[in-house]
Each structure stands twice: as C-alpha cells, then as structure tokens.
Design a protein around this nucleic acid. Sequence first.
DNA 1: TGTGTTGTCGTAAACGTTTACGGGAAAACG
DNA 2: CGTTTTCCCGTAAACGTTTACGACAACACA
Lengths: 341, 341
Amino acid sequence: MASSIHDLARHLNISIGTVSRALNGRADVNAETRQRVLDAARKLNYSPNQSGRSLRQGATRSIAFMLQPHPGDQQYGEPFFIPFLSGLQERLAESDLDLIVVMGAPGDYQQERLRRVVETRRADAVVLAWTRRDDERIDYLTERGFPFATLGRSRSGGKAYPSLDLDFEKAGSDAVDRLVARGHRRIAAIRPSLNLNFGYLFLDGYRKALRRHGIEVDPGLIADGFINEAGGYQVTPRVMLSKDRPTAIIFNNDAMALGGCKALAEMGIRPGHDMAVIVIVDTPLCRYFSPALTGFRPALGPMGRRLAEMLLASLPAHAGPEGPRTIREVWPLELVARESD
Amino acid sequence: MASSIHDLARHLNISIGTVSRALNGRADVNAETRQRVLDAARKLNYSPNQSGRSLRQGATRSIAFMLQPHPGDQQYGEPFFIPFLSGLQERLAESDLDLIVVMGAPGDYQQERLRRVVETRRADAVVLAWTRRDDERIDYLTERGFPFATLGRSRSGGKAYPSLDLDFEKAGSDAVDRLVARGHRRIAAIRPSLNLNFGYLFLDGYRKALRRHGIEVDPGLIADGFINEAGGYQVTPRVMLSKDRPTAIIFNNDAMALGGCKALAEMGIRPGHDMAVIVIVDTPLCRYFSPALTGFRPALGPMGRRLAEMLLASLPAHAGPEGPRTIREVWPLELVARESD
DNA sequence: TGTGTTGTCGTAAACGTTTACGGGAAAACG
DNA sequence: CGTTTTCCCGTAAACGTTTACGACAACACA
C-alpha cells in the first residue's frame, strides 16, 4: 500500500533510524546521506504516517474547534464564523496543524463531545467559540489541564488561558453616543437571548452611555431574541409597544437587524427614514442591504489568525523562546457609517 | 498522565488483551469479567488513545472536508455551508468519526493540502465541496484509490464515487416557467463566474425552458459575477444595459440577489414592483428581506447527513450488509413563493 | 603509538492499541 | 475414566514512527 519508512530504508540500504533523522533535519547525519534520503522520499512519494508519529510523540498535531448552535437557530451563527474559522485554520496549517471541527448542541451533548476529544487525545488543544457567560467547558478544561483558547470572554474567574474578544461594550457605548449626537433619546437595544457573554457586554456599554448622557434606561426598550433573522423579526415589535416609541434601534448583529427591519417595514416604518438603525456586528450583508446598515465591523480573519497564534504560544511544544505570552486581547470594532442612521 | 490500557489491566490483575477484548465487545470474554472491566474503565476514567488505535487498525476514524473560497470572495459561500456541514458532522459523529476541515485557495494550494491529507493518512476519506466543472481533485483521488464523496457533480467522466447534488437545472427551468406564466418574456440570469458546475446546470435549465416557451436566448441578459453580494452588485447593472430591458432576473443565490437588489434600488428600480426577482438557492435571509424573495430552498442539513451516509456505505470498513450502494443522488429544490416576483 | 574527540550510523526500545494464536481448565460426551 | 469440545484468558507480535544509546571509524593531539 502506501510506502513506509522501512521501504525507504531498504531501498537506500540504510537504517530506518538514519532515514528518520535525515527527514527530521537532525544534525547527526551526513549531508550527502541526507540528500539521498530526501531524493528517495520524493521519488517513492513517501510521507510519514501521522498515526505513527502521533503515537510516538504523544501529540496529534491537530486542534479541535468546538461550535454550538443556539436553541431555535440551526445556523451556528453562520456569517460570523467562516471568516474566523478560515483565519484560524490558515494559521494552524502554517504550523502543520489540522483543524477538527466539533459541532453539537450546547449543554450535556457538547460537553460529552468535548470530553471525548480530550480523553481520547484526538487533539492537542481546543478552541472554544460562542462562550457563555458561565461556561462549564472552560471549567472542565482548566480542571483537566488541557490546553485551550477561547473566542470571547467568560465570567469563569481567575483562570489563565488565551482569549480573544471584541470590545462589545465600547461598540454599544459608541452606538449610543452616535445616536444621541444625532438627536435621539429614545434608543432601543435588541440582543440575543441566552447567556451569551457578548450580549451582556453590549448591553453594559449601552446602559453606561445612556446614563452618561443623562438618559434613563427604559427596560421596555430592551429585548432579547434568538440570534437570527427570525429572532429579530419576532422581538422588534415588542420594543415598539412602548407608549413612547423609540426613534432608534441598536441590533446585536446583521441577521437580527434584517429580521427587525422586516418587522418595521410591515408596520410601515422605514429604516433609515422613520427609524435609525445600527448594527453591532457588521458583515458584508449590511453594506448591500437597503438602506445600507451602519455598523461596527470586526476583523474576523485576522482574529482567527491571532487566536491561533496565542494558542500556539501557550502550547509547550510550539512555544518559541520562553518570552511573555499574551493571555487576553480585546479587539476594537470599527464603525462603518452608512445610510441607516 | 492519562490512563492507558496497561493501568487498567494492572488495576484489575488481568492482561491487557482481555481488557481490550472486553472493551471492544468481543465474544470470548466472561460476562462477569467484562462488567468488571467496564466498571473499572469508568472509574479510572479510561478511554482508548486514538493514535494507538489508528496505528494498529490502519484507520484514523476521521473524514476530511475540503472547502475552497472563490477568488474575490473570502467568504467560502458562507450561508450555504454551515447547515450542510452540521448535518454531515452530526452523522459522522454517530459513527464515531471526526471531521477535519481543510480550507485553502483553489488550485495548487488546495491540491497540495489534499495530497498531504491523503499521503500522510490523516483521514480515511474525503468530502469535496464546491466541485468545479472539471475537478482535478477528483482525478487525483480516483487515481490514488482514496475514498471520497462530493457535494455537487462534476464532468469527470466514468468515475464511480458517491455524489450528492441539487437539481439546479430543474430549478432554473421552473423559475423561467413561473416567470413566463406571470407574463414575463425578458428574463435575465445572473450566475457565478468560474467553472462552478452548478452555474452551468442552472443556466442549462434556464436556456431550455426559454426555448420551450419559444423565447430566444439573449446573451445580453446573462451575466457572471463573484458569488457574493459584491458580485451581484457589480454585475446586475450590466444586464440592465440592454436596449430592451429585462422585466425579471433570476439570481443564482441569496448573496448575489442582495447585491443585485441594491444595484436596482440605486437605479430607482424596486424589486417586486418594477422587477421580478427569483433566487435559486434560498436561505433564511431571503424570507426576511424586503420584499421577501421567492426562491428554491435546499434541504441542506439532510443533505449533509445523506452524503455522510453515502460515503460511509462506500467505505469497506463501515459498509453494512453488502447491499447495492447509491452512487449519485440529485435532490429537488423546493419552490418557496414569496413577494419578489 | 596511545588517548581523546568528532562525525556518522545502526540497534532497539518505546508510544498504546488490537488480534492471531495457543494453552489450560472446565464442561460435555462416549 | 478418557476424549473431545467449549470457554476464557494470557502471550506476543504488529502497526509506523522517533530517539536514547552505543559502536565504530576517522581524525587530532600529545
């Protein structure tokens, strides 16, 4: 079948030890021999069997990415993740690491999938997405001492692990500032239900900014919904029930905004004319919507790359010179002003 | 560190052979001993090391999914893939198989990543997405005799492998039928550039239906663009240049339609009023757009599950009773009539 | 010439499993 | 009681690597 290191050694009349050393660039092998090995490897189309390496080295050279959908949403936060995933996997590939994607419902099932990965040592480390406010996965991994990194912060206190997040708090605050500057005082906020941490962060920023402007926070102007089009559609009317209607709405993400605008349209309210709309997490969709939605754009691809790098630096095997390691980073969200506010 | 089968054996005063047999449900082990082993395994928190199994069994228990972005599009056909991926991975998980996601630019780079997976035996099989009309990856895999399945057809002739595709031809044809029935005769088609096969299939159906209705195919009403919002935005005006303007446009997918509608809006043309719009590949976005876009909805999740099943059935190791195996399936696209046409 | 050093390579163990094989005891059978 | 069968289990090889160790030759040095 596929050629092994033994075939190569036999073909060269050399021991497998020498072949291995030559291939792995060790010092104690003659330059000429190394070249012969390299040539033969190419000729015989040899690549080392990954299972063999993994077993011997105790490392699988792969990283698991855990993704969970939200109840009521089969979409896994789609538009958000692929660019991130792409950056992540690109960086991992550069270090010859593979990406294993593990999906599954949150809660027990996801936890079980995670346990399987860890205990059968299928991956050397784990990347967590959609971190919850209190995330049991983080507890589990720190307890086991298994390397991991997270996209998003969580409340799990005092634990040290690489994490990367967006500054939702500042975005929420900036959105309010911008709307207030444009004369709005009745500003609604629509965020995802569940205990997704960024929903809280965004709302914190929103609240603080309102207070700073001397505007009372009206609970009737805050609503939670599924983090998708349907969620935005269902929940937006609720905010319009107030006796004193909002003149602006901040949506957590593009999908919710899309559903929300649909609901507004059905009420005869035109986003961008009769109602200012701002989106916190901007995607290409926002730009091409009518009216084009102003929002805060994340640098998803670079974030994926960066988190991969932070994770690698925290891994004993891949760490470079034992320099200081970045533990947590919070990246800014850049405002893209368009037509909807 | 993590417990091995030796620890378990020592703890039970039993040989590792027996432990392994007990765990793997083989017949030649006493019922009581098996129970003791099972209990101890749970107590000591033992799970077999995957690298060890892989090496011994010559199978990694993982499947690679190859995804390529399109030039000019960093999005990997986002909204389309996650639900599919979710179904795929769910089904694989049920057979205790992991999913490795390999991304990378099409062409040489993607080919090299594929070679690495195959030659280093990181996966037992491969799933190809975004198949091109002539796909060198398919040639490579069949030549190597490596198991694989594809989402989408390709032109690579005479090769037998499981493949699953949508009936884009019929959808293109149905779309024309529907528009003609509503009085349209100037119907434009906007499809992805590159040699993505579904672009051709869709256009074939479109052309045939027009001819069936005795309408001449006007090349000026057909345009190619990047398969995303920007592509639709850029290319739609081109179709409007005809001296005899179209009264209806069929877009290949939701993202292109979104961009196209934006372009129309800027020309003062209101989709659903002044211009009929139909989308071939419908996603949740279409429903919540204003006007809600009529389109053809694919059953992405079930398709993922099904392709996983077809692939498994074609694998020697996982094949059930040697029944006949489905090789290719073409699934219908279901029309969802909404407001835009 | 004897001793120490350097450069290169082969040997063999080890990683954690699964499994073919054989052995011994108990059960079944005459 | 002797023979055959059945049931369980232990032994050891094998999967494909990497790597610690030692051997050997060549060379330098005194």
